[in-house]
């Protein structure tokens, strides 16, 4: 059991949880100075960063063949750019 707890995946999990709690705190905060359209884009970027960590480490794509790595990269970057562009089109 110790092998699983003291592993790279656990560090990734902790990082993911911290990022989630941070975004939750910003969402919860009544402080309007914390909230802007740029923050919306940052929040989307952070969530795609989280998906990148899950894909690379949990899904073991880090050690997969370049074709799969490339396809996952295309989805991640493409989706991030697409969603951010649609969001920014309002501004």
């Amino acid at each position: 059991m110790k092998n699983y707890i003291y592993s790279k995946n656990t560090v990734v999990l902790l990082f993911l949880v911290i990022l989630t709690l941070l975004s939750w705190y910003v969402g919860l905060s009544g402080d309007e100075s914390l909230k802007s359209d740029a923050d919306s884009v940052v929040m989307i970027f952070l969530s795609f960063l989280k998906t990148g960590l899950v894909i690379l480490f949990f899904m073991e794509v880090k050690s997969s063949k370049p074709e799969l790595l490339g396809m996952c990269g295309v989805w991640m970057v493409g989706s991030c750019v697409l969603t951010s562009s649609v969001l920014l089109s309002y501004i």
Partner: peptide, 25 residues
């Protein structure tokens, strides 16, 4: 099975900020 499960997690990671956190300005 595990790959399918990770996809379920990935989709929620994006859905969470979109639905719950975006009402910023």
């Amino acid at each position: 099975a595990v790959t399918y499960w990770h996809m379920v997690d990935l989709l929620w990671i994006i859905l969470f900020p979109l639905l719950y956190l975006l009402p910023l300005s």
